[in-house]
């Protein structure tokens, strides 16, 4: 029993959950008010859009690419959600589907022309931002009532955010980690050649994963405006780097194929809590970014130690 608990494999999988628990306990200690339904809700509700963005980023990282445009994309979805989706729902839905199609097309373009995804998605980040500014030139707009209703749902025992985050993690976990096609999708990132030799279409896997990223990016934008009640084209620029950090913090790796959906959701939560933790500590703002980075480095250093222990055996 103790041997299993101390095995590097178990430790590596448990590390994200462990760091989240430690952080949560520290916050409860610092600010007991957070230990309530109301407190947990305020503490975690903004983590849900980040969790969605992180899952979107994870889809891209799965196929060994990186998305530097997800933040601006979430901003565009927010802009569409607070304008067209509210005033003319049909146009809004069509625009959102169009966005997902563009994402899928990006996957195809990157695969067919063998382009570096960093360049393509960085370029697209400006396109997304420009489109968001066209849709919503000045901050404002109104979120559709049903999105607001979902995001402010009063669920029993625990806040809605926690149920939603668990659901997303579990669903994506079964889709990518347990299903047969999920294995192919991961394989396409980890070892594309053998997957192609086995007769699977790499184009199809890329398009699928990019379309999924577009879908989760859309959920991120819609859940975000459900919380803020109105949009701003620049609302989510930070999500690009946060989502990458969330994936890595949650146990994913840049090499492609090595991912953990539940870990990614936990990673997004950890990042959000880290910021709150630093606020509760009353750390001066000038030090906060650095301290946030410090927390990241500590967690990743633990993982490096565990990986080394695993390699030694």
């Amino acid at each position: 029993m103790i041997a299993t608990l101390l095995s590097p494999r178990f430790l590596r999988n448990a590390l994200p959950a462990l760091s989240l628990t430690v952080l949560l306990l520290a916050i409860f200690q610092l600010q007991p008010r957070t230990m309530s339904y109301f407190g947990l809700n305020l503490l975690l509700n903004l983590a849900l859009p980040i969790a969605f963005a992180t899952i979107a980023q994870m889809c891209i990282i799965t196929v060994n690419d990186l998305d530097l445009g997800i933040g601006s994309y979430v901003g565009l979805v927010a802009a569409i959600g607070a304008t067209w989706l509210n005033e003319t729902p049909l146009l809004g839905v069509a625009a959102l589907l169009g966005c997902i199609l563009i994402y899928a097309a990006l996957g195809a373009l990157i695969h067919l022309r063998n382009l570096p995804s960093i360049v393509v998605t960085l370029g697209m980040s400006f396109v997304w931002l420009g489109m968001a500014l066209l849709v919503l030139p000045t901050p404002g707009g109104t979120v559709p009532g049903w999105i607001r209703a979902i995001m402010t749902l009063k669920t029993p025992f625990l806040p809605f955010t926690i149920y939603a985050a668990v659901a997303v993690g579990v669903i994506v976990h079964f889709g990518l980690m347990r299903s047969a096609y999920g294995t192919v999708l991961r394989g396409a990132g980890g070892n594309p050649r053998s997957v192609a030799r086995a007769g699977w279409s790499l184009l199809r896997t890329k398009v699928t994963m990019f379309a999924l990223a577009g879908f989760f990016g859309m959920l991120s934008g819609l859940s975000l405006i459900g919380l803020t009640t109105s949009a701003d084209a620049n609302i989510a620029l930070r999500y690009t780097l946060l989502s990458i950090a969330g994936v890595i913090l949650g146990g994913g790796e840049f090499v492609g194929g090595r991912i953990s959906p539940i870990g990614a959701v936990i990673g997004a939560m950890t990042l959000t809590l880290a910021a709150s933790f630093l606020t509760f500590l009353r750390l001066p703002p000038d030090w906060q970014i650095g301290a946030q980075g410090g927390i990241l480095i500590v967690v990743l250093a633990f993982r490096a130690v565990i990986n080394r222990a695993e390699a030694r055996r």
Partner: peptide, 25 residues
């Protein structure tokens, strides 16, 4: 009378900051 400044000029960060201030009572 405590002052809190967000590290980056970002809406989502300030929204989180305000929610934290609510929790701090």
């Amino acid at each position: 009378a405590d002052a809190f400044t967000t590290a980056e000029n970002q809406v989502t960060e300030q929204a989180a900051q305000i929610q934290n201030l609510i929790l701090q009572g």
